[in-house]
């Protein structure tokens, strides 16, 4: 794993992030900081701005205002430095239907600059971790939605990135697959050097894998705390906290 020597630099630092589309504002003035090694759940109802935020963090789209730094590198000024450090699973797995699983993973590994001598081992490792090694030679067109999702996850794991950004990684999976992906994320997060930000609208998911929760609703951050602190402070289950905060935020948004 390529690591920066200074662990004190936050893995992800977001300041005053705003994204306005032509007709609406998706996120307003988001600020948060995620330390190296944290596993953070990015929680919010559909349309809250989770995907937009993640797309900005990964350098897919620029913010209207605000800054994003990954390990101290500004995503607009040093996009290559950021992209080298981030593994990203978009909302819809970015797979080519006409490629085999292994062909696809090799292509992505080359794109990410994995050396020729390490290519085979690296692809095998990621495929093994995401649980797609046994379907390596199948065309992606012919594998189920759940497997496509896992191929997308394998792709994000290539080049062993220090920051993983996963946009709804368990959507479309069956209960057994969901449990497998969650345990994989827990296992990946156990590495103290790896930072994971995953978005979801499923409360159990954050409960199951995350130490910390950033809750957004209506484009605002409505809570940012550990799971325990959040439920203690509101003296309620996460469901109730979430419902209460989301409703307040919706009302506050013009």
């Amino acid at each position: 794993m390529t690591r920066d020597p200074t662990p004190s630099v936050p893995a992800i630092e977001v300041r005053g992030l705003t994204k306005a589309y032509r007709d609406h504002v998706a996120i307003r003035d988001l600020s948060f900081s995620i330390g190296a090694g944290e596993v953070v759940g990015f929680l919010g109802p559909n349309g809250a701005g989770k995907s937009t935020t993640m797309r900005i963090l990964t350098g897919y789209m620029p913010p209207t205002r605000g800054t994003v730094r990954v390990r101290g590198h500004d995503v607009l000024e040093e996009p290559m430095e950021v992209k080298r450090r981030v593994g990203y699973l978009p909302e819809i797995p970015p797979v080519y239907l006409d490629m085999t699983v292994v062909g696809y993973l090799r292509f992505v590994a080359r794109l990410k600059g994995v050396r020729r001598s390490e290519l085979r081992a690296e692809v095998e490792r990621a495929a093994e971790q995401a649980g797609v090694a046994h379907i390596a030679d199948r065309l992606i067109r012919n594998v189920s939605k759940g497997y496509r999702q896992r191929v997308g996850l394998a792709q994000a794991l290539l080049h062993d990135p220090e920051v993983l950004i996963l946009d709804e990684p368990t959507v479309g999976l069956d209960p057994i697959q969901i449990e497998q992906v969650r345990s994989l994320i827990r296992q990946l997060g156990a590495d103290q050097r790896r930072t994971i930000l995953l978005s979801t609208h499923i409360l159990r998911e954050v409960e199951a894998v995350c130490e910390r929760i950033i809750m957004i609703a209506g484009g605002h951050i409505v809570a940012d705390d550990t799971f325990d602190a959040l439920t203690r402070e509101h003296d309620a289950s996460l469901e109730e906290v979430f419902a209460r905060l989301a409703v307040t935020a919706e009302r506050a948004t013009p």
Binding site: R55, G59, M80, K83, I92, P94, L111, K112, G113
Partner: peptide, 14 residues
């Protein structure tokens, strides 16, 4: 249209 553009644009390539 296949959403793989997101992969290319977030990979370390110009």
């Amino acid at each position: 249209s296949g959403r793989t553009f997101e992969l290319l644009m977030t990979a370390p390539v110009t």
